[in-house]
Each structure stands twice: as C-alpha cells, then as structure tokens.
C-alpha cells in the first residue's frame, strides 16, 4: 500500500474540497470495504484518503413525504434490517441482505456500495494494464470472461458489482450528491455510465462529488433475486430487481452489464397489465434478447432469463408455474486453455 495522508473533515463540503485540493489524487473512504483492497493491491494509489466518518447526519434511514431517505453512511446491515425498508422497499432490503458477509455488511455503507469498483479479475490485478486502469486492452475479450458482461459491454466488459444499485434502479431511486457546485439530485440510473463513455470509471460523478443520500419512493411492490455460486462472500453471477409501482413496472438486472442494467424491453413486455406467468416469461426473454455474450459467459443468458422471470413473479406475488418451455439451451462453452 502506498503511504497516504488521512483527513477526516466535519462537513461534506470540506470533504469535497479536501478531494479537490489533493495534489496527488484522493479517494473517499466510508466503510473501507472496497477501498482497502484496492489500496493494498496498489490498484488505487491516492496521496490522500478523505474519511466521511466525522461528517454528522449521514447515517439515518427515515420516511419523508412518501420516500425513504437513506444516508450515505447507513450500513448495508442497517438497510437489510430496517423495518421501514423491509416494508416499503422490499427489493432493497433483499439486495442488502445478499451483500458479502455479515462482517462486510456491518461495515460497508450504502454510499460505498454504490460507488464500489468492479470485481473484474483483470482490473483487480496490477499485472494487467487494462482499459480501466488506463491501459489499452480489455483482457476479458481474449481472456477468461466467465463472469463478464453480456449486455452493454465494450470496450471494457466489466459487470457492475453493486446489488443495492440494481434494486435502487428498479425502485426509481434518486441520489443526492455534494460537490464543488453544491448539491444536486440525480436519478440513480444517471449515476452510472457505460464504459463506451469513459472506460476508466463507472459513475458520472465528478472526482470531488460525494454521495450524501439516497431517496427511494416508498410502497411499490418489489422483489430482488440474486444468483451466485456460493451463498456467502460471493458477488452476483446475475441479479434482478423488479418494482411494480404506480408509473408501471421497472426492471433492472445486475451482474450482466457494466452498469446496473435497466431493461426497457422487459418493462414494455410487461406493460400496464397485471403480471401473469406468460408475461413474466415473455418479459424475461425480451430483456435478454439484446445479449451479446463473450467467449465464456453464454450460460449467463438463460440464467439471467430464469432469475428475471422469477423476480417478476415474486414482485407480483404470482405463483411460479415453472418455465413455459424448455429453457434456452446454451451452446457448449469450451474455455480457452482448458481444452486438453
């Protein structure tokens, strides 16, 4: 880990200024569950680390005029356990419950979860100078892409790692951020941008902008489902969140794209009509129709389709009759370097 200067200002404005004025780059630290790993691996080598710990008023979860207001420093565990979240935004509570391990949930924060960096193994290893680290190559294209993007990829093919973001996109949440130009509120979907815009980062925030609060419209029926290879300490292979609110259905997928992926195709397929087993299946198929898998991740297409279909049914409270026809058959996936 590179040595750094550590600051702990008392206001978000001061924290933003501390980032802005850092001569050799700065990173914000909240729970540290992602940043510490990056520092240790020297993926991040800031000259300054700015803690939000001393900033008051960033922790609570409250309801205000039909919305849940969740402070950026609320821990993932607090969200998972909050009776308010469980009742008014169940998809978010389910997503929070699925994060990491009890230890990570106890320290990891909502703001940190939304701003965490991708888990792509090429990004995480200093020996691979990938696009995201300012290099010229996405190593996943020719390399091992079993956990990479099937939607929205290119030129970098990471998947966004946040579970909370997937739920929040479905729930039509917005995020309040604080920076040099003061405070602004943006829809959560606008917090993220595809690598085609800028492969070096996942969010649209200016370097000195800090997430202060998340606002979630309360009361929509919603559900979140996550498929992972093991039941703890694992990121989503695919995840889905669905909310059925007054403005119509909203569908988001995780683990499949460089951003939490909103599927307008699925939303259109569901329309305004009550969800049925058939419409859920059709919506899931529509969501994955644009999928462009890489060499090793074709299996994620039927997997995402299944997880989304079930999530839609769970959100609508419709019993699962099983898939309508045999699920799509993945072509044999022979992995490079494994064929002996």
């Amino acid at each position: 880990m590179r040595a750094f200067e550590y600051l702990s200002p008392k206001t978000l404005e001061a924290a933003s200024a501390a980032v802005r004025t850092a001569p050799e780059g700065a990173r914000i630290i909240a729970g540290g569950q992602d940043l510490l790993g990056e520092l240790k691996e020297r993926i991040a080598t800031p000259g300054r680390v700015v803690s939000l710990k001393a900033v008051p008023g960033l922790r609570g979860i409250r309801e205000e005029s039909g919305s849940l207001r969740i402070g950026a420093l609320a821990t993932v565990q607090e969200v998972a356990e909050s009776p308010l979240v469980r009742e008014k935004a169940p998809a978010l509570a389910e997503a929070a419950t699925s994060v990491g391990t009890p230890q990570i949930r106890a320290l990891g924060t909502v703001g940190g979860n939304l701003c965490q960096r991708p888990r792509c193994w090429y990004y995480r290893l200093a020996d691979f100078p990938c696009l995201k680290k300012g290099g010229g190559t996405c190593f996943a294209v020719e390399g091992d892409s079993r956990y990479h993007a099937i939607l929205g990829g290119g030129p970098c093919h990471i998947v966004h790692p946040s579970d909370l973001a997937v739920a929040l996109v479905a729930l039509d949440a917005s995020v309040e951020v604080v920076g040099a130009k003061g405070r602004r509120t943006i829809p959560i979907a606008d917090l993220y941008a595809l690598p085609a815009v800028d492969a070096s980062r996942e969010t649209t925030l200016a370097p000195d902008e800090i997430v202060a609060e998340v606002s979630v419209p309360a009361g929509a029926r919603s559900a979140f489902r996550k498929f992972r290879e093991k039941l703890s300490l694992d990121f989503a292979v695919v995840a889905a969140a669905v909310a059925l609110g007054p403005k119509g259905p909203r569908v988001a997928l995780g683990g499949v794209a460089p951003v939490p992926w909103r599927s307008r195709e699925a939303e259109a397929a569901l329309g305004a009509k009550p969800v049925t087993a058939e419409s859920a299946a059709a919506a899931a198929t529509a969501a994955l129709a644009p999928a462009k898998p890489l060499k090793n991740n074709r299996y994620k297409v039927p997997l995402a389709c299944a997880v989304l279909r079930r999530t839609i049914l769970a959100a609508a409270g419709v019993a699962d009759p099983g898939p309508p026809a045999p699920p799509a058959t993945p072509a044999p996936t022979k992995k490079a370097g494994e064929d002996f």
Binding site: Y122, L125, D144, K230, L231, S232
Partner: peptide
Amino acid sequence: ALLERRIEDPATGRGIAVDLLDYKLPTALD
C-alpha cells in the same frame, strides 16, 4: 465438486483467481 478451480489467464498463464473471493471455497451456508 461444485466450486473450486485454479484459474489462469489463458493468454499469459497468470493466476487470476488468487484471493478467497475468486477462488471459491464453500462457506458454512453452502
């Protein structure tokens, strides 16, 4: 049976699943 395998980058031969997140050991829940 279900999870573990050492993974190398097929082009360079470098290990890429070198922590306990990517090298998947079963947990108590599994």
